[in-house]
Computed example of a mutant assay.
Amino acid sequence: MAASAIALTLALPAGTALAQGSGRPVRLILPISAGSGVDAIARAAGPALGKSLGQPVVIENLPGAGGITGAAAVAKAPPDGTTLGLFSNNHVINPSVYKKMPFDAIKDFTPISVIGSTPLVLVVNPKVPAKNVQELIALLKAKPNSLNYASSGNGTIIQLAAEMFLDEAHAKARHVPYKGTGPMMTDLIAGQVEMGVVALNAVAPHLRSGTLRAIGLCGATRSPAAPDLPTIAEQGLPNYAVEGWFAVVGPAGLPPAEVKRLNMSFAKAFTSPDVLEAMKKQGNVISPSTPEAAARFFQSEAARYAALVKKANVTLE
């Protein structure tokens, strides 16, 4: 098991959810590094998931290749409900970015639920002399390609969100990809790179401490977790809007009864009072979907990002 994995073994009262689950541990794979937005979400919901599933939950980070490494582990797992994945936008972006994939991002997985969304925020190192969108655009245009923007990897939603900003602003900056959000944040704070897009829940402590400066939220509306932080759209780029989402999936071939059980268990956990409060503090919006709605959502998001990837001209081997 990866060093970053945390076993959440929960003591359950007799006659509770254990009667519904097999009792065997559930391996919840996150195809991203520790310290990312989805990682914070999974850790906050872990105890409630164990209770609602009636099974111990082991959260395991398997980053690499923009999420392909972790997703491949889910695709290869037996369809018995003991191996699941908590995926984000990257899962449906990758087919448009990579020329070769070890699996089919749609056919080799069973959608269980799109759990919710999380706000993204454009940040800069404090040494950058820009405090809002218009000042940053002016700086980028005055010195084309003089600033570097970081991402958690080539072709990720983090890179595409930054590329979309540059496209809307008609500006240029150099891309510096990292192997995950953790090392990306380290270099952003140290000033090795000047700007980047990060999940709000992952960067909030650094905004409060002043080690990073927020330029604007990437979503269409402000976040209750940061009501004073304006969106990029309201600062002069009205067509700019992108946010992260997170969904639970299993391998292809999960029995319908197990899909229903898992869907209900995840919905129960994420709408429990403690988890809802934790999600609110992180700025996440929780609205668990049905498996059928999740399947339709994956298809529509794959088509949407295919167009964005083509526009940004992002292609990897």
Rank of each mutant, 00 (worst) to 15 (best):
S4H: 13
S4T: 15
S4N: 13
S4E: 11
A7E: 14
L8V: 15
L10V: 15
L12P: 11
A19F: 09
Q20C: 06
Q20K: 12
S22R: 06
R24K: 11
R24V: 07
V26N: 08
L28C: 10
I32Y: 09
A40I: 04
A40R: 09
I41P: 01
A42Y: 08
A45F: 09
P47T: 06
K51Y: 15
K51L: 15
Q55S: 12
Q55F: 05
V57F: 13
V58L: 15
N61E: 14
N61D: 11
G64R: 14
G66P: 10
G67L: 09
I68W: 12
I68D: 07
T69G: 02
T69E: 13
V74M: 10
P79I: 12
T82A: 11
F87K: 07
S88A: 10
V92D: 13
I93R: 11
P95L: 07
V97D: 10
K99T: 12
S113Q: 00
V114P: 01
P119E: 03
P119L: 01
L120A: 01
V121S: 02
L122H: 02
V123A: 14
P126R: 04
V128M: 03
P129I: 09
N132A: 06
Q134G: 03
I137K: 05
A138E: 02
L139K: 05
S146Q: 15
L147Q: 05
S152L: 03
G153D: 03
I157W: 01
I158P: 00
Q159G: 08
Q159C: 10
A162R: 01
E163K: 00
L166N: 03
E168K: 04
A169H: 00
A169T: 00
H170V: 01
A171Q: 02
A173R: 02
H175Y: 00
Y178E: 04
G180D: 09
M185Y: 02
T186S: 07
D187V: 05
D187A: 06
G191K: 07
M195N: 13
A199W: 02
N201R: 06
N201P: 05
V203T: 12
V203Q: 00
L207C: 03
R208F: 05
T211F: 04
L212H: 01
A214P: 13
I215C: 07
I215V: 14
T221H: 13
A226W: 06
P227H: 08
A233C: 09
E234I: 06
G236S: 04
L237I: 00
P238N: 01
P238Y: 01
A241D: 05
A247H: 08
V249T: 11
G250I: 06
L262Q: 06
N263W: 08
T271Y: 11
M279D: 04
K280Q: 14
G283V: 07
G283I: 07
N284G: 05
A293W: 05
A293R: 13
A294K: 05
A295P: 15
E301R: 15
A303M: 15
A306C: 10
A307V: 13
A307G: 03
K310T: 03
A312C: 10
E317H: 15
